[in-house]
Design a protein around this nucleic acid. Structure first.
Lengths: 342, 342
DNA sequence: TTGAAAGCGCTAACAA
DNA sequence: TTGTTAGCGCTTTCAA
């Protein structure tokens, strides 16, 4: 009876139940308990039974930090998005998160606010967690952040854009193609005087430029370009549309860099009694879920965000588990969804 | 020359630069390098200088899994929300994420999809990461998940609701009060025949019930209650409004459990040529950023989500760092924002 | 102010 | 199939 009755844990212990406790209760070695939980096929039925019972009784929850440290596999995936509120990226993040969770991975979310400086800080913090993969929205331009990431050896998936020279994997679509496609779509409808309402976002800029070049090459007057700060501001769209109507009253088609800006533009047009699509056609970008049911419903460019998320999860997990088989560059394309506003 | 020229790392090493490498380069012991980075005040200027230089030269990024394991502090906060896409919670998550990042913490995001079963799995996975705190949307009802969480000893912050018996900390508001307040607000405007459009969500249910009781107690006819599945579906709001107009054509006020449902209701009313607010008043819930600029602009119940996020970060970090000073229950309140639709 | 030793809780590697 | 041993990369503890 001189054994410790209160099994005094070392002063450093966190106090939680550990695999050792479980193993002791099950009467096996810790590594055997570990195998019973992680690779059950490697263990006899009887042992597995006893270990699971001990887990139940103790309420043991494995410490993934310890596991990750020992195995160099954190089962953590980091995602960096420019914004979350009312944003077109959330559909992707939602499906990514689901797919990851089903495979036993956890998502760490970082928000860059469209700032390169912030993104660099974020990446540094993220690398410190040693995630098994990093999901980036956009292409990471050459620079310190990219060098760091490369040096870290963590699998990286860039999305939402195309480049012949990704860091590693890429799932995206061409913003230039979208600009051109929307331009021909509208020209095909007989529209002749164009305006662009675009947020301060480099990718939106490329769509706009491609659009403007396409209409110019077809011999039309230069498109009027209105810059607004925030892609999520309906108000910005309203004000931009007011300027369009003032500065180029003969405009008959407007391409907006987000659905919310488009909704703002529609709102202003309606407030001024301008008929849509009769007088002016409007096209948005993103296909946020609910605008399909507005009256009039918004024509827009649809990106299959959920599909990006699913494929991203697959790619990242494949890399994490060392079976890299998928092609590393995927163009996921886009669709012009025609509804009432054109 | 018999020293290893290629400093062969042990077969288990991840290969990344470690604190040891930095320390060696700086000519100090690992623990000194650790102090130079984490508690610079404890170290001489000269040593600090040399260590920082070595960090620069090597591109060292500390392994937070190892640090967390050794110190029992992960600097990770987990947040569980019912949904992310087009959701009223994202404003909170965004500000939580920012506040955490500024304090050197990282956010892990889990999505419960309004499912208790899923939430339990999520919590189990989350506990395994040993976060320094857990942010929950809603109150966790007694049950296995709550017991587990309690046993884990991880600080928990419940939000978005009130209860006298939180697990630990609480930042919320009263759904009953909201239901009652909106009822008196509408009755005060002279409205007499009410309808509720509500999503399948327990909290929305409580707002609706309180609303219905309040109008009944004032001697009005029972409010018509229409259930819809998804709070984020504009279409659901439209269909519900169509039913309201069919089943109770004399309805003159509708309270919807989300702004998106309210937008759907408005859309349907307009499609049927019904004047808002003249014939029917509409009130939403959540005050999603952009609806203020619609025409007509939506009257709604505003929750200061960004403030919840900020305070949540403060509470959780205080607990994590062992200086628990804030009150543990905070009623953050709500505001009825009157706009065009009433 | 600096360092040596030990250990956080787990798993890889090797052995039986 | 099971166990022993030795780390993973860091920080706590204690000592100088």
């Amino acid at each position: 009876m001189n054994e410790t009755v209160h099994p005094k844990r070392s002063r450093r212990s966190s106090g939680a139940i550990t695999l050792r406790d479980v193993a002791k209760l099950a009467g096996v070695a810790p590594i055997t308990a570990s195998r019973a939980l992680n690779t059950p096929a490697q263990v006899s039925d009887e042992v597995r039974q006893k270990v699971l019972e001990a887990v139940q009784r103790t309420g043991y929850v494995p410490n993934r930090m310890a596991g990750g440290l020992a195995s160099s596999r954190s089962r953590l995936i980091a995602a960096i998005v420019p914004s979350t509120v009312m944003s077109v990226f959330m559909e992707t993040i939602e499906s990514l998160n689901h797919s990851l969770f089903d495979a036993g991975y956890q998502l760490m979310l970082g928000q860059s606010d469209y700032s390169a400086a912030h993104e660099e800080l974020l990446l540094e913090a993220v690398i410190g967690r040693r995630p098994d993969g990093i999901f980036l929205t956009g292409i990471l331009p050459p620079g310190r952040a990219r060098t760091r990431l490369l040096a870290s050896g963590i699998p990286v998936l860039e999305t939402w854009d195309l480049t012949p020279t990704p860091i590693d994997m890429l799932i995206g679509f061409s913003h230039l193609d979208i600009g051109r496609a929307v331009a021909s779509f509208l020209m095909g409808k007989g529209r002749r005087r164009f305006a662009l309402i675009r947020a301060q976002d480099e990718r939106a800029g490329r769509r706009a430029t491609a659009f403007a070049e396409a209409v110019a090459q077809s011999g039309h007057a230069d498109a009027l370009v209105i810059n607004v700060g925030d892609a999520r501001s309906l108000k910005g769209g309203r004000e931009a549309m007011a300027r369009v109507l003032r500065e180029a009253p003969d405009t008959d088609a407007v391409f907006c860099s987000s659905d919310l800006l488009a909704l703002g533009a529609m709102t202003e047009a309606r407030a001024q009694g301008i008929l849509i699509p009769e007088r002016i056609a409007i096209v948005g970008f993103g296909d946020v879920p609910f605008l399909a049911d507005m009256v009039p419903s918004l024509s827009t460019v649809r990106i299959n965000g959920a599909d990006i998320g699913r494929q991203a999860a697959r790619f990242l997990i494949e890399r994490a588990e060392g079976r890299a088989v998928s092609p590393s560059i995927v163009d996921i394309g886009f669709t012009i969804v025609e509804r009432d506003t054109t």
